[in-house]
Every structure is written in structure tokens, then in C-alpha cells.
Design a protein around this nucleic acid. Structure first.
Lengths: 342, 342
DNA sequence: TTTAGCACTCTCATCATTAGAGTGCTAACT
DNA sequence: AGTTAGCACTCTAATGATGAGAGTGCTAAA
């Protein structure tokens, strides 16, 4: 649907004022701050029309208008001028991310922190995944006679570690055997190929050493699984309490904590490279249907790998947040790619 | 101050009822649920006395009584029968912690999760520190021609890693030089000895290689610092929103996020091995003065290393939470010690 | 020392009233 | 035909009055 230019101006004014103040906007108020050269009666007529079309609604008869979900949607799609992020904000983001220290998780944590401060929203992000990632390196660092720390590094830069206890003593020989198995059967394989079945077969084929080495192999498989799993990071949850017309903060926090649904959501829409905006009921999950979710995928080495998302009330400053998120996502991808390639 | 037995009974009844229901307790209500064989008038007299002494107070004239801070304190110190944790809850805790997977941070995360579920409080915990910890191992895992991941393991089991970029190519020779320096100057030293000054001196002494190796040494020093730093973990923050007579959840969440004050608090009281309870204004920090903080130190290898703490409203089920926290702390210490020694 | 009884206080919910904001409609104006 | 002034109408939110109910403290009797 296409609105007349004047209707668009009025709609944009309503939305921007409402986002800024949280108050429903009346016809007179609107004239005060927006430079629309008509009388309040005309505005009223236009507003009535916009109401009929479903772009704005009234909390009650004697109140002003507030944007409907459809209104926000129109605004985001057509009206909002996605302003270029000011250079100093860009610099700020770059500066804050430059000292994050290499590992994807650290970069994301830093990015999330910045984003939470910048936007006053809750921030979610997923660690990079890469179906084609393979196990790049496995290290076994002995800690004592019966314990060792196993470290696994994937080709996509994910590092995971776990402490492993063995029943029998961790001899040099045992460790060597382990390394042999690893380099023969696992290095260069994808994590998903490290199945329990394979582990068992291998263990059995070792005969007498089987018992001694199997705890190591089990840990290996645990690690492989961990490496493969997307992790969800949450930050700025307390920002949800800022917004006072937003009573269900608890519910949302619990939803975010569950993690899994969001991970799926991000994975599902991986194709679109653009920033996505889901407003209110557009969200599949009930818990988010009073909120807006804005998310954007970052790409490492040219492939979409993970996403950063913002969650806040539907009454949120889309025009400001979207460019910030977009730019930050870009930088995150760039930094991760830098580290990985060479 | 010592109260008469009957006063103690009444005080305990008021506190327990108030903790359970959140409602101020009147003299009649009290008779209904507690088996105190006197009339409401007598209870009223006793209550008046308890009010005068400062153990209970009235929100307003026509309301019942609620415990004062002093009342809670008396209850925690003398009345509350610290009941032994039921065996099945013990088992539950043990089961949930057994598969946490070795690293201190993972153990604490798991413990915090359990505690948050069990207590409905926000949970804070600090990673183990050990002034006598030394650098046990440093590994450099090449990722590309100019990047590597450096991993540092301390004798107290802390593992930290960072990605490091070098300006010149990471040759095998360079790596070997690095390992030589590390084993000669750093292994077995405490992290605090890795000063910038030392790094600079070392770099200079290398002459031509100086420039190539200094990024590695800088990363090493970063890692040493990280290893030494106590980290604060937060969990169950959303639990703060559960309690409805507790409006300042946001303030507390922000306070917790800042982290540092709590780290200091825990470090400051390290001497006492017992569980500590700080009620309301007993807390030094303003942000906590409407809350209660219960914390307990875990010890790894016989030395106090870190702490777990619970934060909730002053109206909290002390009698149940304290034993839970205590037991969990014990187990955490035990598991960490297991991993470390051998 | 305990208890019954009673006057007193204060909160909270309910209801009526009112000021104010904002609308939609009509009729006049450009 | 589009715009505007004016006005009746509607609904909210604030205010104040009223009354029921809960709980107390005190007194006098047991």
C-alpha cells in the first residue's frame, strides 16, 4: 500500500514523537513539533484515515494516536531514512572492538557489550558456525598423573577445552597413542563425524589399551560436540528493565535464557544477508510478541556464520539502532575473518 | 540481648510466616498457624514489647508486624534451626555437578545454575585465586602465517587463551625462541612477576629478533594478567524479578554487572570460613541495602580460593538457603581439588 | 499474669465528580 | 474540492468522600 506524501509525513511524525516520548500523539501536539503547514482539523482528518487503514491506533477515545505494528512496519520499510552512522560513532565501535583479543567468543562479548551500551537493548549473539569446519588441532596437556586438559581447535577458530580424568595412569606412551589416533582419524574431519560409534570401534580395535584410552576418546567426542554447537551469548539484559511500558521483562529474560529457540531462529533465516526486523506479532515466539527483534548476520571469510540481535519494546528507535547494529556486525565479521585467514 | 522463650517463639513464627507469605502478621493470624497456647491479647503484649525492642516493626498502625533487620539477624543467629539438607537434595546437587567438565569456570557455571534454580536468588561466584599460583604451561598454537593462539595454564587450573597477531612471519625458529624464553623466564613464576618492564628488557636483549617476538611477549603478559584476575560470574539474575516486593531489581543488576565491588567484598572477608549473612543495611554497598547477601567460600586444596554468593530480598528463606549454599560450596571445593591434585 | 472487650487508627477499595485532552462532524471558507 | 473553525461528545485520570476491615493499645476483670 502506498500512502500520500502528507500521510507519510504525518505517520513518520507520529512514530518519531511516540518513540521519543512514549506519549500518544494528538493532532495539536503534532503540529507543535512537526512543521506540517496545515491546521489541526486537517491532521485529524488524515489521522482518522490512517486509523481506518490500520497504521495507527488509539489506546482510548480521548487519547492521541500511537503507531500500530503495521505502522512501524511501513515506517521501517519505507519512511525511516537510514542515516549513515556518524563517523565518531564508527570510530568508537572500532576502537572498542580492536582490543577484544582474538577468540570469537571474546569478540562477540565485547561487541555485545558495546551494542548494549549503545542501544539500551538486550543483546543476543551466536558464535560462528560453519558446517564445513574441521578439527584442526587437538592438544592434550597433562595436569597430573590421572588428569589432563584436552584442547580442541576447529578450522573456524573455535577453541574448546575440557579436563579429562583417566582411570589408569597417563603415561607418555598412552598420550602418544592418543595423538596417533587423533591425527590418523580425526584431524581434518568435521566434528559431526566424531560419532560414538566410531569412538567405540576405535577403542575396541586397540585391544589391551582400550580401557585406558577410552576416557580420552569420550572427552574428544564431547569436545567435538561442543565445538559444533552454536552458543548463544546474552548481554544487557538489565536494559529490558529500563523501558517502563514493558512489563514482561521477566518472561523475556527467561525466554532468552532458554537460548535454543533463538538459536534456531537465527539459523533459520541465515540466507538473508540483510538486517532483519521483526516487529511484535511478526515474531513466531509468543514471548517476543510485544517486542521487536532486530538481527543481522556477520560473515566470516565470506560465509554467514552467526548473528547479532537486539531485543527491546516495539517502541524502539529503529532509525538509530539499525545502522549501529549493521555497522557493528560488519566489523565483527571483518575482525573474525582477519584472525582466521592471514 | 536474650529474649524470653515465648518471645523467641513468637518472633520466629512472625518471621517464618512473613517469609512464606509476604504478609504482615497480626496477633490473630499468628495464633491460627502457630501452636502458641495463649490468647491474642497476650500475643499483642509480647509483640508490643518486641516492637519496642526493635525486633519487629509495623508498616502502618492498622497492619500486622514484619521483622526488622535486627529481627532477621536474631533469627539467623539464634533461632533458625539449620536443618540438615535432605539426602535427596544432596544427591541432586552432586549429580548436577558431576558432569560439569573440569575447568573451574565450568564447574562454577554449573554450580551457579543449580543454585539459581534451587534458591530463586541471583547467584554470584568468583573464580579461584591463589596468590601462590604459578604459570605452569604456555602453548603456542599456530593458526596461520601471522597468527597464533596462545594458551596459558596456571598451577591453580585456570586456563586462558588469546589470539595473537605478529607483524613478521611466524617461523618455526621464532616459535622455538619464544618457547625458550618462556621456559627460561616464565614457567614456574607467578603471573604477577610478568611485568611490562621484564618483557621490555627481554625483548631488547634479543637484538634483531626483538621486533618479531615482542607481540608474542605482549600477549603473554596480557594472559598472565588475565590468569591472575579474579572473574565474577553472574547467574539467575532474572530471579530478582520474581520477588514482587522488591522494586530495585534494575539497580541491583547494574551493581552486579559492575562486578568489582563484589569481588572486593569477597576478597575482604576471606578469613572466615563460615557462611556469612549480610542483611539489609549491614551491607556496605548502598545498592544492596534492601537485600540480603549470603556467601560462602570454597577451598581448593585446603586454601580458600573463591566464593559463591546469593542475593535476594531481605525477606528470604534463610533456613533453607543457607544449608543449600553451604553444601554446594563444599562440593565445588571438593571437585576442584580433585581435578587439581591427583 | 493472662484475657476479654472496646475504642481508636489507619489502609484500601469503591464511588462520584470533574477537569482536560482529543476526537469526529458539520458548516463555512478559499 | 480541499481546508479550517467551532462545537458537542467521549473517555481518562485525578481528586475527594465514604465505609468496611484489620489490627492495635489500653483498661479492667479473672
Amino acid at each position: 500500500m502506498q500512502l500520500s506524501e502528507r500521510k507519510e509525513k504525518i505517520l513518520a511524525a507520529i512514530i518519531e514523537w511516540y518513540i521519543a516520548t512514549g506519549e500518544p500523539v494528538g493532532s495539536k501536539t503534532l503540529l507543535e513539533f512537526s512543521r506540517i503547514p496545515v491546521s489541526s482539523a486537517t491532521v485529524r482528518n488524515e489521522m482518522a484515515e490512517l486509523s481506518r487503514l490500520g497504521f495507527i491506533e488509539q489506546p482510548h477515545t480521548s487519547a492521541g494516536r500511537i503507531p500500530s505494528q503495521m505502522g512501524y512496519r511501513y515506517y521501517v520499510d519505507k519512511l525511516m531514512n537510514r542515516y549513515e552512522l556518524p563517523i565518531n560513532e564508527k570510530r568508537l565501535i572500532e576502537a572498542r572492538l580492536s582490543d577484544a583479543g582474538g577468540e570469537p567468543q571474546q569478540i562477540l562479548e565485547q561487541a555485545g557489550q558495546v551494542l548494549a551500551e549503545l542501544t539500551n537493548c538486550a543483546v543476543v549473539s551466536t558464535t560462528p558456525t560453519d558446517e564445513n569446519a574441521v578439527i584442526r588441532r587437538v592438544e592434550l596437556v597433562p595436569l597430573g598423573t590421572h588428569t589432563a586438559m584436552m584442547v580442541m581447535l576447529s578450522s573456524s577458530g573455535i577453541l574448546k577445552s575440557r579436563v579429562c580424568r583417566t582411570d589408569s595412569e597417563l603415561t607418555l606412551e598412552l598420550i602418544e597413542t592418543f595423538y596417533n589416533i587423533v591425527s590418523k582419524h580425526f584431524i581434518g574431519k568435521s566434528a559431526s563425524e566424531v560419532s560414538i560409534a566410531l569412538i567405540q570401534t576405535l577403542a575396541l580395535s586397540l585391544g589391551s589399551k582400550s580401557l585406558a584410552i577410552s576416557p580420552l576418546l569420550v572427552t574428544l567426542s564431547d569436545l567435538a560436540q561442543l565445538t559444533e554447537q552454536t552458543q548463544l551469548l546474552l548481554q544487557g539484559q538489565s536494559n529490558l528493565l529500563h523501558h517502563n511500558d514493558y512489563p514482561n521483562a521477566y518472561e523475556i529474560m527467561e525466554f532468552l535464557r532458554r537460548g535454543e529457540p533463538l538459536t534456531n531462529l537465527f539459523a533459520g533465516h541465515k540466507a538473508e544477508n540483510n538486517t532483519n526486523v521483526l516487529i511484535g506479532k511478526e515474531n513466531f515466539y509468543r514471548e517476543l510478541q510485544d517486542s521487536s527483534l532486530i538481527y543481522s548476520h556477520y560473515s566470516v571469510g565470506g560465509k554467514d556464520s552467526g548473528a547479532l540481535g537486539l531485543i527491546g519494546p516495539t517502541r524502539i528507535d529503529y532509525a538509530r539502532l539499525i545502522p549501529s547494529l549493521k555497522y557493528l556486525t560488519e566489523i565483527v565479521g571483518k575482525i573474525m575473518s582477519d584472525t582466521l585467514e592471514d
